[in-house]
Amino acid sequence: MLYVELFLQGLIQGSIYALVAVGLTLVYGLLRILHIAHAGLFTLGGYIGVLVTDATGSLALALLVAAVTVGLLGMALYRVCYEPILNKPPFVALIASIGLFIAMEEIYRIVFGPYGLSYQAPPLQDSVVLWGMHLTQAELAVMGGGVVVIAVLALLAEKTRAGTAWKATVTDPQMAQSFGIDTVRVRYLNFFIGSALAACAGVMVALMNNLVEPTMGSVPSYKALAIIVLGGLGDVRGTLIAALALGVIEAFGTIYLGDLMDRDAIAFAFLIVVLMIRPQGLLGRKA
């Protein structure tokens, strides 16, 4: 019974990781930028979620507003911060991104206050029994929703013309242009989708913890970096699997290795072990 419970808890945490990490891997795949500030957008999603839910009473509306607002902000970040430095060495964008992330945390502190916000009446708190486990509806929604959304995204990338254009742009932007693909539009779409997913993750994490605070993005930001490396940089399906695997490993690890290492140390020990065995990531082909 304990195993099932740990496994489910791992999947819930893994789904959150996946929603955050997918945006990061999309950006890396396309622009070779490690978009640290992505986690700042995740936090903003949490704030918008709490504010809109409290104002209107609708979590669905909150998810929609958070996704659209943060998606558009993600596009703006690309336009203002990244586009002008794309032909500089990659560390320039990395430094810009770290600076941006710190600035975002401080802005949230000033605007929303240092103590964080909570839902006045958090929705989806009723208990659901699954294989004898008691889960909240919110946890169930995260687990199901996260996996479904990302699986649909991977399927769209596989089967539609737009998805194919996106993949072609990732492989060879110049050739994609030669066949009439507007690669700038692909980048904007990329930032919109990735940022919107992070915002939804932020709303749901704020709901599960019933708290959103300025530094909520710190742990997901470096955890997501580990995940996209494990998943094979730029690979959506690999990221989903790596995120779920990491969630489950952490859940078991905190029980069985908790005396030796804390949760984050377990995550990175897992990363190190996997990369020693498979330097190309869990699913990646050898370069």
């Binding site: 013309r161 254009a165 993949k167 072609a168 009439g180």
Partner: peptide, 22 residues
């Protein structure tokens, strides 16, 4: 182009789809 520069991760079929994208 020189070196073919195919979209190597995509299937033959999807490469053709990109060719007719416009």
């Amino acid at each position: 182009p020189e070196g073919r520069r195919l979209f190597t991760d995509l299937s033959v079929e999807r490469n053709l789809v990109v060719g007719g994208y416009h």
